[in-house]
Simulated assay, not measured.
Amino acid sequence: MKKYVFFLLAGLLCSPLLQADVVIIGNPAGPDSITNNQVRDLYLNRSKELPNGQKATPFELPEGNQVRAQFHDKITGRNDAQLKAFWSKQVFTGRGQPPQEAGSEAAMKAQVASTPGGIGYIDETDVDSSVKVIFKP
């Protein structure tokens, strides 16, 4: 029994270390920086432009993704159920459509890199020269 308690405690203590460090990425031709509030406004349909005036195209990871959960926890303060309800209302009232979904972090990076005004989020360890970090929450 003590052995199981030890492993349980060890797992709980190490779990924060396994959490991703999410960063906001942008297309290399886009702005060099963005604020927390500007990112939130883009992902909650309150704004459609990047700080440089360029039309923004936000991308979203699938529900259940750990990086998505961390992003929304830090930026929008909403979980998957709250986001689903929010976007259902936006679509129903004709106010907007949810961000385009990227199937994985690699797809997110590729879509942001190839889309003018593209913005997304990935784990900091996945950043390469195809995109640039424009904000770190």
Rank of each mutant, 00 (worst) to 15 (best):
K89V: 10
G103E: 11
L9A: 14
E60M: 14
D123C: 09
G77H: 09
P28L: 09
E124G: 05
K74Y: 06
F6V: 15
V131C: 13
Q54M: 14
I75T: 11
V67K: 12
K84C: 05
K109H: 04
K132I: 06
N52L: 10
Q66L: 15
G53V: 07
N36H: 15
K89R: 10
I24C: 02
G117N: 00
Q66F: 10
V131H: 05
I122V: 15
S114P: 04
D126F: 15
S33M: 10
A102L: 14
V133P: 00
D32Q: 11
P51T: 00
V127C: 03
A107K: 07
L18G: 10
N65I: 07
K2V: 15
T57C: 02
D73M: 05
K89N: 10
K3H: 08
S130C: 04
K55P: 14
P116W: 03
S15Q: 06
V22I: 05
D123E: 00
E60P: 09
Q82E: 15
A20E: 06
V23H: 02
A10Q: 13
K74D: 12
T76H: 00
N45Q: 09
F86D: 08
L83P: 10
R68I: 02
V133C: 13
A106V: 12
A56G: 07
Y4H: 10
V112C: 06
N65P: 03
R78Y: 08
G30L: 05
L61D: 14
R40Q: 11
N52R: 04
Y121M: 13
G53T: 02
G64P: 02
N45K: 01
F92C: 01
P58F: 01
S88M: 11
G64C: 08
A113N: 10
I119F: 08
G94R: 02
P31W: 05
R78N: 08
I34T: 07
V23A: 00
N45R: 05
V133N: 04
L13P: 05
Q38Y: 12
M108R: 03
V91W: 00
A10K: 04
R95K: 15
P98W: 08
F135S: 12
D123Q: 07
G118V: 10
I25M: 05
N37Q: 14
G64W: 10
V91A: 08
S129H: 07
G77K: 06
Q90S: 13
R78T: 04
I134W: 12
P16Q: 07
L12W: 12
G30W: 03
I134H: 04
T76S: 06
N37F: 08
E101Q: 15
V5A: 02
G117I: 01
N36C: 05
A110T: 11
A69K: 14
D128G: 02
G53E: 06
Q82A: 13
S33L: 01
D123I: 13
C14V: 15
R46H: 01
G120Q: 08
P62W: 09
D32T: 11
P51N: 00
V131R: 04
F7A: 13
A29P: 10
G94T: 04
F71W: 11
Q111R: 01
T35D: 09
R46A: 01
N65C: 01
K55G: 03
I119P: 00
S15A: 11
N45I: 03
P62Q: 13
